[in-house]
């Protein structure tokens, strides 16, 4: 059924990573992304790869599923790699046929870039795989709570996110139903040119719009009846609390930052010839 599509790609499981506080996960992922960008040699980046592998291992999410997350960006990785190979001329010439000249520098830079992009994507998908949308929204809500003092009301935004998440399955179901009903009256959503198709969507969107307005109105009433007043003085049942896991994660964040900086300093900046020298 159309409503069975999983949203936000959440993979419910019982693991160390799943049980971490969403705020800590956000902190971890953000610092990890910065560190991947800062890594300037293969050793640092290799270390980041190890960290990623470790996180995947303890999250209990199958490697195959994680790699699936890379599928949409394969093309980007491929194009970047080809450009690097084509234009980077450092290092030893490996192939030189007609006008194609491939150098070791080009190949290595391509690998470096591909690895960097992949790590960024994999770690970000790990965040959504191990954190339910609700929990993520909750985390964001709490992180941004202090900004209220300076007049930035993030609570409204996170409330909107929560309601959107709540109503997406309902609306998908509704679209499905209205489409079936209009098809029963001979509407054709699949044929014709763009203009014709866009026009065919009117019988779908008008009812959807009207129904959504009605829903919004009713929901607002129901929320008022439940004493909602814009989040003032609101408490939370599942108050986010740091557990030992989160302190371990905090330690790891510090560890990763320190390691990458040290590796960057001691192993030197990535340089095609140098690295090639080592690998040969």
């Amino acid at each position: 059924m159309i409503k069975d599509i999983t949203l936000g790609q959440y993979f419910p499981m019982h693991s160390f990573v799943h049980k971490m506080d969403p705020r800590m996960k956000l902190l971890f992922v953000t610092s990890f992304i910065v560190m991947v960008f800062l890594s300037n040699n293969f050793i640092s980046l290799g270390f980041c790869l190890l960290v990623t592998a470790f996180v995947i291992a303890i999250s209990k999410i199958p490697l195959k599923t994680v790699l699936k997350g890379l599928r949409p960006i394969i093309l980007i990785i491929a194009i970047t790699s080809i450009l690097q190979i084509a234009y980077n001329e450092g290092g030893i010439v490996l192939v030189d046929i007609w006008r194609i000249k491939i150098t070791s520098g080009g190949v290595l830079t391509a690998v470096f870039m591909a690895l960097r992009i992949s790590l960024l994507i994999v770690m970000s998908t790990m965040l959504t795989y191990t954190t339910s949308p609700t929990s993520l929204t909750n985390g964001l809500d709490r992180i941004f709570a202090p900004f209220k003092k300076i007049g930035l009301d993030f609570h409204t935004i996170t409330m909107i996110m929560t309601i959107a998440l709540r109503f997406i399955p309902t609306l998908i179901e509704e679209v499905d139903k209205i489409m079936s009903a209009q098809k029963s009256r001979g509407a054709n959503f699949e044929q014709g040119n763009i203009i014709k198709r866009a026009k065919a969507l009117i019988p779908l969107f008008i009812p959807l719009l009207f129904n959504s307005i009605r829903r919004a109105y009713e929901l607002a009433n129901a929320m008022t009846c439940r004493c909602y007043n814009g989040g003032q003085g609101k408490t939370t049942m599942n108050a986010l609390k740091f557990s030992y896991r989160d302190y371990i994660a905090l330690g790891s964040v510090a560890g990763v930052i320190a390691s990458v900086i040290l590796l960057n300093i001691y192993c030197g900046e990535y340089n095609a010839e140098f690295t090639f020298g080592i690998t040969v």
Binding site: K177, I178, S180, A181, Q182, S184, P203, I206, P207, F210
Partner: peptide, 12 residues
């Protein structure tokens, strides 16, 4: 001819 449940929500 098929008329769905709550068909009034399909008027447009």
């Amino acid at each position: 001819g098929l008329c769905f449940q709550y068909p009034e929500y399909q008027l447009f």
